[in-house]
Design a protein around this nucleic acid. Structure first.
Length: 244
RNA sequence: CAGCAAAAAAG
């Protein structure tokens, strides 16, 4: 029972999803109970391979065989629909899992938010973000990065900054949020804004934390601002857009 | 420590 999902998992990881499915079917015939672990691995494998139709079939087979899908299975199929840009179907699964009493996680929302950005539905993405927070699910570094990247690279820098501010007032800023925000601001060409943010998050005269400094320097360099990167290398207290 | 998301030329 344990070994079965381990094998299925392994096969999926090396891209042998078909074989994994085969193995699962055989295990089932042998009377072994195939659990959600195995199904999620296969659904995920198919989703990642772009075989959303197959994934959907397996997803259905799962419940028909009396195996209750858990949040991993739901997330995997939702991810498949998102990757296929089938957002309405993805959303339907979200509502479906909620109806079945399976609570979405921060993963679920991150997948959906990313999916909405990929089809340029900013409002949809933001709505999900708010819904997540309203549900009391704290955003983590990945989910914030997904949101800030999606917003900034689609020209909604100020909206992204606002979200970060909101998180700050709520006291739930993910660990790498500032570094990520600075990086994506640079990538979006908003270098000055990135500098101000970097300067603003430390007290006047204090050192910029090492991790942030390095991320910043690299981002500047990648943004083609070698001069500013150089300046940052020589200063431990920021670039000085705020203090000048 | 059996299965799911983003970014990444420093995890």
């Amino acid at each position: 029972k344990f070994a079965c999902s381990t094998v299925v998992n392994g096969l999926c990881k090396i891209g042998e999803v078909e074989q994994a499915w085969d193995f699962l079917e055989r295990s089932q015939v042998l009377g072994l109970d195939v659990n959600a672990f195995s199904y999620s691995a296969i659904i995920d494998g198919l989703s990642k391979a772009g075989k959303i139709g197959e994934a959907e079939k397996v997803f259905k087979a799962m419940s028909e065989r009396g195996c209750a899908g858990d949040v991993f299975c739901f997330n995997a199929i939702i991810d498949g629909f998102c990757k296929a840009a089938e957002m309405q179907k993805a959303m339907r699964i979200l509502h479906c899992m909620e109806k079945e009493g399976c609570e979405p996680t921060v993963y679920t929302y991150t997948i959906l938010i990313d999916g909405h950005f990929k089809v340029r539905d900013l409002e949809g993405a933001l709505k999900l973000w708010d819904e997540m927070i309203d549900k009391g699910i704290s955003p983590n570094a990945v989910s914030f990065r997904t949101l800030s990247t999606g917003l900034c690279l689609s020209g909604n820098v100020s909206r992204a900054c606002r979200v970060l501010d909101e998180l700050a007032t709520m006291g739930v800023v993910p660990e790498t949020a500032y570094a990520d925000m600075i990086k994506v601001l640079c990538k979006a060409g908003r270098v000055k804004q990135a500098c101000k943010l970097a300067d603003g998050i430390i007290d006047r005269g204090r050192e910029v934390p090492g991790k942030l400094r390095c991320a910043f320097i690299n981002a500047l360099r990648k943004a083609g601002k070698a001069d500013l990167a150089f300046k940052m290398v020589h200063s431990r207290i920021g670039i000085g857009y705020n203090r000048s």
